[in-house]
Design a protein around this nucleic acid. Structure first.
Lengths: 198, 198
DNA sequence: TTTTATAATGAAAATATATTCATTCATTAA
DNA sequence: TTAATGAATGAATATATTTTCATTATAAAA
């Protein structure tokens, strides 16, 4: 008899993971259109044919990454919906992001995939869903900021305007992290929240 | 006899301008690779053939836009090199950007072209030059922030870290402006400079 | 050693996109 | 009218990228 079901499953998972992580890096750094399937296969150390045994099309692969990103986003939105102290929540969230920036590219990649999803032609359900989630995330953040202002924890100002600025700065940091490489310096959480904190 | 030299020149300039502005919008919004020559020609309201009488290749067209961006960047760097008051300089610069954001997409497009230049395969002299200028701009800003700190105008902190954060936030705002469209809200200059101002 | 199940390959076919070029169009003035 | 000049077109060709598929490789167990 050949290998067991479990062994085959493990092999499939291993290559799927290689494809997944190669694709996320390349899509995040160069963009969907600028990344060829060949690029991804080379970077994952497999043949193009094998890639196609895992994903029907290049769009399918992208949709899979988008699904993962949506799950991550969902978690963030849920956290923001709990009614713990706004100032602690924003402080905590910002610190985590900065630590992620210091650790590796994972969070930056995640944010760039989110950005890709809003510019790409492919309007799959997955992409549409992620884009809706992105909007929901900014709206939840605006609500959180509003609550913080009511509690006298944050500076005054239009909460939506402030939420947009907050995510813009984080998106921008992700972008610069991926283009500047070693030259990038992660800012302190104080810098990132200065516009908010009294 | 046919049209005069001036008339032909005017015609050429008119279509060149149409190509230029269609291309800058599309490259900024979708990225170089995701934008087809057909897209640009359609958007400019001309045929692909005519586009190729103006630019030898798609890369050539991109390089032309990069040259324009580099000229704009040059001006900014020069302004930053004058030794007027750092606090006034940063305040002035930030206000201008916010006003540009409120007016139209021109500045956002310019910044996204700068970003494209740092991710694109094409390593033409123009692209390399723009990338060097981008670095120079951040460095000049860090110097300016350092001077402002010495004068007691700005908060303390690593000037390079602060300069990177400043450009990240502006890059991010450009990105969100182009993806959010009407939903985008330009932040007040106070928000954008809060991390700097005492 | 052979059989079996499925992973893995890579060259070929299909498709998309960039580029060329023979042709037509528009305008001016002799 | 017609000749002259160069802009403008778009179908044809070249090139690049995606997708398929017949073939080979691998490991386990009979």
């Amino acid at each position: 008899m050949p290998r067991t079901k479990e062994q085959f499953e493990a092999m499939r998972m291993a290559t799927r993971d290689k494809i997944h992580s190669a694709a996320i890096k390349l899509f995040a750094k160069k963009g969907f259109a600028a990344t060829s399937v060949q690029d991804i296969a080379n970077s994952a150390g497999i043949s193009t044919g094998l890639l196609y045994r895992h994903y029907k099309t290049k769009d399918d692969l992208f949709n899979d990454l988008v699904t993962y990103a949506a799950i991550g986003l969902e978690k963030i939105i849920e956290t923001f919906k709990t009614d713990s102290s706004p100032i602690e929540m924003m402080g905590q969230f910002t610190s985590e992001i900065i630590n992620d920036f210091k650790k590796d590219d994972e969070f930056a990649n995640f944010l760039m995939i989110m950005n890709q999803a809003s510019t790409v032609d492919n309007q799959s359900t997955q992409v549409v869903h992620l884009n809706m989630q992105s909007i929901a995330m900014v709206e939840q953040t605006a609500k959180l900021i509003g609550r913080g202002q009511d509690l006298g924890q944050f500076k005054e100002g239009d909460p939506m305007e402030m939420a947009i600025y907050f995510f813009a700065s984080i998106q921008g940091l992700s972008m610069l992290k991926l283009t500047m490489n070693e030259r990038f310096i992660a800012p302190s959480p104080e810098i990132v929240t200065a516009f908010l904190m009294k």
